[in-house]
Simulated scan of single mutants.
Amino acid sequence: MNILLCCSAGMSTSLIVTKMEKAAEAKGISARIWAVSESVVRSQIDEVDVLLLGPQVRFLLNEMKNICGEKNIPVEVIDMMNYGMCNGEAILEQAIKLKENK
């Protein structure tokens, strides 16, 4: 499963990526999880199963839905509470549910 996180600079989600990777490993889930700035999303969209947006870039949701819609890639904003608490397990679950329901 390939999960791309989009944030404003591609840096603020690095801790979340680490926590999500640990949660995936603990659950025995094979996942590639990485974060980029919104300007890089288009160039990497072909590698993605799920796109999650950081709350700070929620204003990009419609644009990202347009980009991902053509490829049937689900997009959602990360829950602000989970993002703020760096709850990697909950954010991973959000991504898994998105992929299952696409």
Rank of each mutant, 00 (worst) to 15 (best):
M1W: 02
N2M: 05
I3Q: 09
L4F: 14
L5F: 14
C6Q: 08
C6P: 03
C7M: 10
S8I: 00
S8E: 13
G10T: 07
S12E: 11
T13E: 04
S14Q: 09
S14C: 05
V17H: 06
T18Q: 13
K19A: 14
E21D: 09
K22A: 11
A26Y: 02
G28Q: 02
I29D: 00
I29C: 00
I33P: 06
W34M: 01
S37W: 05
S37R: 11
S37T: 05
S39W: 03
V41R: 01
V41H: 04
R42K: 14
R42I: 03
S43E: 13
I45H: 08
E47Q: 13
E47F: 09
V50M: 02
L51H: 05
L53D: 04
L53E: 04
P55S: 04
V57D: 09
R58G: 13
R58W: 04
R58I: 01
R58V: 05
F59V: 04
L60K: 11
E63P: 00
M64E: 15
N66D: 11
N66Y: 10
I67C: 01
C68E: 12
G69L: 01
G69N: 08
E70M: 07
E70N: 08
N72S: 13
P74D: 07
V75K: 12
E76H: 08
V77A: 13
V77Y: 05
I78T: 04
D79T: 13
N82W: 11
Y83G: 08
Y83M: 07
G84L: 10
M85P: 01
C86K: 02
C86S: 14
N87I: 02
G88D: 05
I91H: 01
I91D: 05
E93M: 08
Q94P: 13
I96D: 00
K97C: 02
N101L: 12
K102C: 06
